[in-house]
Simulated assay, not measured.
Amino acid sequence: MKLSVGLMLLASLLGGCDNPPAPEKGFAGLGDQAVAFTPVVPGRTFSFPADHGAHEGFRIEWWYVTANLKDAQGRDFGVQWTLFRSALDAAPQADGWRNQTIWLGHAAVTSATVHHAAERYARGGVGQAGVQAVPFNAWIDDWQFGTQASSADPLADMQLKAHDSRFSYALRLTSTRPLVLQGDNGFSQKSEQGQASYYYSQPFFQASGQLEIDGQRYTVSGPAWLDREWSSQPLTANQTGWDWFSLHLDSGEHLMLYRMRHKDGAPYLTGTWIDAQGHSQALQAGDIELAPLGTAKVAGRAMPVRWSIKVPGKHLDVTTEALNPAAWMDLRIPYWEGPVRLEGSHGGNGYLEMTGY
Rank of each mutant, 00 (worst) to 15 (best):
A72R: 13
P339M: 11
Y268G: 02
H346E: 14
E192K: 09
Y199I: 11
T272L: 06
G124L: 10
Q193M: 06
Y199D: 09
V134L: 11
Q132W: 05
G96F: 10
Q281V: 12
P223R: 06
G209I: 13
M1V: 10
K70W: 14
S175G: 07
L269V: 15
Y268H: 08
A117K: 04
S111W: 01
T176Q: 14
T38E: 12
A327P: 02
D250E: 13
W63S: 10
F245S: 03
A327R: 01
Q284L: 15
V298I: 07
G194I: 04
K310G: 05
A156R: 09
A291S: 14
V65N: 13
Y121M: 15
G125I: 09
R123W: 13
A94R: 15
E229W: 04
Y199C: 08
K190W: 00
G124H: 09
P92Y: 11
D250H: 02
G271C: 14
Q239N: 00
P267W: 02
D287F: 04
R332P: 13
H279Q: 14
A118G: 03
P339H: 05
W307Q: 00
W328R: 07
F27H: 15
A28K: 12
W336R: 01
L14I: 05
G31L: 09
S308E: 14
D142E: 14
L290F: 00
K263V: 10
Y64V: 04
Y357C: 06
